[in-house]
Amino acid sequence: MKAFLKENSVLIAGITLPLILTAIFFALTQMQIKNVTPPNHSILYATNNNYNHYYKVIIKDEHAYLSIVPLPKNSHHRNYKLPDVYLFDPRSGENKQIQLPVKEQNKERQEILIDELKNIKFSAHAQSPDGFTFTSNYKRNSNLMTEMFGGGYRSRYSYVLKKGNGTIEVPNAARYNTQFIAWTL
């Protein structure tokens, strides 16, 4: 065994190099997650909301409303689907989908208070009161090896709550289809 290891030391070093890198970065990521104290505020965000000019969740007087804006007849935007809205509590990890009021299409502009959120106060400010921001962790660092052997960038197509170097991943937040709405107060 010793002779085999000695004879093939270069090959073994080459094969184990990527494994060592993996172990180092996995350990670093775990340490980073453990070292972050989660924000004291939950976050309200929407997914499946691309090109949605009809329904929007807005914050008015510190409360969340579903805004319905009738589109002009010649508008080419035709996304009439309700977005999926989530309230994510980073302390418990609970990610609760919010039921939005379903209304018939109407010619008039409407703003309906979201019943499930009526007792919670919100701030639409991008930064939470304790300094976290909702941001994409996508980094454009693809190359031949990642394209050939990377398997599709699961980890880079997501949103995180970020403060300094610490990040907390937001569940169900697809890269191209997620919008920040507000922090709870």
């Binding site: 890198l21 993996t22 970065f25 670093l28 980094k139 660092n141 699961r154």
Partner: peptide, 8 residues
């Protein structure tokens, strides 16, 4: 490596 967040 990708899942362990090794930079590209």
């Amino acid at each position: 490596m990708e899942r362990a967040y090794v930079p590209g």
